[in-house]
Design a binder for these strands. Sequence first.
DNA 1: TTTTAGCACTCATTCTCCCTGAGTGCTAAA
DNA 2: TTTAGCACTCAGGGAGAATGAGTGCTAAAA
Lengths: 354, 354
Amino acid sequence: MELSDRKKRILRAIVETYIATADPVGSKAVAERAGLDVSSATIRNEMADLTDLGLLEQPHTSAGRIPSPAGYRLYVNELMDQHQLTIQETERINQALNLKMEELDRVIDRAGKVLSQISDYPVFTMAQAKKRVTVKRFDLLMVEENAFIAVVMTDNSVVKNKLIRMPDSLSETQLQLLSAVLNNSFVGLTREEMEQALDKMESRTAPAAFELISLVVDFAVEVLAEQGQNKIHTAGITHLLEHPEYHSLDKAKPLMNYLAEEQEASKLPVALSGGKNMNILIGPENVSDALKDTSVVMASYDIGDNMRGVIGVVGPTRMDYAKVTARLSYFAESLTRMFGKEELPPGEGKEDKE
Amino acid sequence: MELSDRKKRILRAIVETYIATADPVGSKAVAERAGLDVSSATIRNEMADLTDLGLLEQPHTSAGRIPSPAGYRLYVNELMDQHQLTIQETERINQALNLKMEELDRVIDRAGKVLSQISDYPVFTMAQAKKRVTVKRFDLLMVEENAFIAVVMTDNSVVKNKLIRMPDSLSETQLQLLSAVLNNSFVGLTREEMEQALDKMESRTAPAAFELISLVVDFAVEVLAEQGQNKIHTAGITHLLEHPEYHSLDKAKPLMNYLAEEQEASKLPVALSGGKNMNILIGPENVSDALKDTSVVMASYDIGDNMRGVIGVVGPTRMDYAKVTARLSYFAESLTRMFGKEELPPGEGKEDKE
DNA sequence: TTTTAGCACTCATTCTCCCTGAGTGCTAAA
DNA sequence: TTTAGCACTCAGGGAGAATGAGTGCTAAAA
């Protein structure tokens, strides 16, 4: 059944007042705010209905009402105005994102910090490869007699290098030979495939050569593994303490720990369904227990063709959804644009990587 | 004037009890703990003396005593037993530090986390170059017609690379020429010197060539700049909340923010004087206002020949100095050993770097 | 001279009790 | 269907009283 227009206006007034004040909202306050020109008694009747419908909750008998998760959900889905960013705000975001070309990791990390600052909530970020990553090519650079630098470039244009020391010395030609073997046998393979190929190779290769090969391949495997795994960064967890729901340490600590421990946070429900690139999880909609009274607003953005990033804002269920979604979506768009243009021309991949 | 033995024992008992309980310590408790076989009244007289000497403080008339900063200082300097690590603890530290070769940054970051876990206090870490850093060599690797990878190796064996895109295409020979120019003119220079050399070169080089050169040199300058600056990591700030002195948010927030903001934390008084490789700053001995009621225990360790790291524990003045110093010094020793052996054989530099 | 016992005093903390006021649900009238 | 009115509920706050840990001082004991 569809709610009456008046009920909607009342619900909306309650949600917005509660978001602003963090105090349960009474019928009188609603009567004034909703601009409905009816008495508080009428509002009370309507509020009783909304409570029956499960959209409002009463902390105790004689307090005002607060929105239930279902109430927030309805507000977010139907009632909420898209908050308009002010010019200053877009300015600030643009300016903040106008970084020098930097390591991808650092850009993402920095983006999280900036978003956290402008939203006053903690923010988590992560990037994940969309599809399988393979090595595109190997380069070996002689440094001294018994050490060389291995440079590995992946097909999403991440380039990493490592100094490798050898037991015995090696000539320039031998190094070139080694490089040829690597480029012939290990290019275009995923991590698992590389490991298999290495196993197979062991029996039919001279031990000394094999040792060198496996040193480089192990490194390549590490690089690929790193690409595959979702590195989560969090920023601004101390913002939590600014919100009254976390003024009690009992509430604040579990959540802060959850966010501070990267492994934990990696369980954040980052499943962004299908085509949508913005998602809101309200309170109990979160799977994790630590997030029970917490809402998560997240958006995804593209990093070139091969990677996708997720950036999300964490806060109390009483979160200013209108503002947060507006900022977040603008932010995500800017990031997509930025990675698309400067760093990752289609088919190229990102520019700087160690 | 030297304190009587009995006064020392009383002071020590008070400090240790207070460290354990966080409650002001009364004469009766001291009488029992100090094992002096005198009555509480005697203790009271002695405590009054210690208060006059400025070693103890009274939160209010009828509370027990707590140590003053001077009291802690005396305890730390003279009274404190070196806490012995249990086998389990050393095991745990060793195990935790037994990482795979990884990026220096990450090792340090990880070390901070581990120390934070075993000490239950927040930890900050940083690494700084001991002396001027220069570029040891350049390598350029062709990727495709109009893109190449620049690999820069510094004299502390940090190797970084970057994909550089060019406006025009370039032949393999031209790239080799470019590499030769770079290796001839920019090796062994510091950041400032490189910038100067680049300026000079501009007038007497073809614009197209100069553009390429400056792209690579700019990158090298970035790399050097990064080496020079002190990157501070902090770990485990949420541990603060476990200690009663930060149960009030008014106390916790400023310090947490201080630690969370890297720029702020970089003002941490990391001046480790001269030869000493362990330092304790108690309360007001800290310069920064945010650390007024906070103690910092820090130790330094060597990263090969060219770099030095600092790792420190931050906590309330009522900190278990004995335990913390024991763990920290073992930790710092382990780090020095680890970097010395596995990663940075003298004159070589560290192994893995992007 | 040092130590001890005793006693009056202080004061943060805790508990109880009461009051206040915001807000409710219900009823009866408009 | 809306409104006004009224009795009722209950969290929050404040005043006071009780509690008790701890002190300083004094006078006696060692």
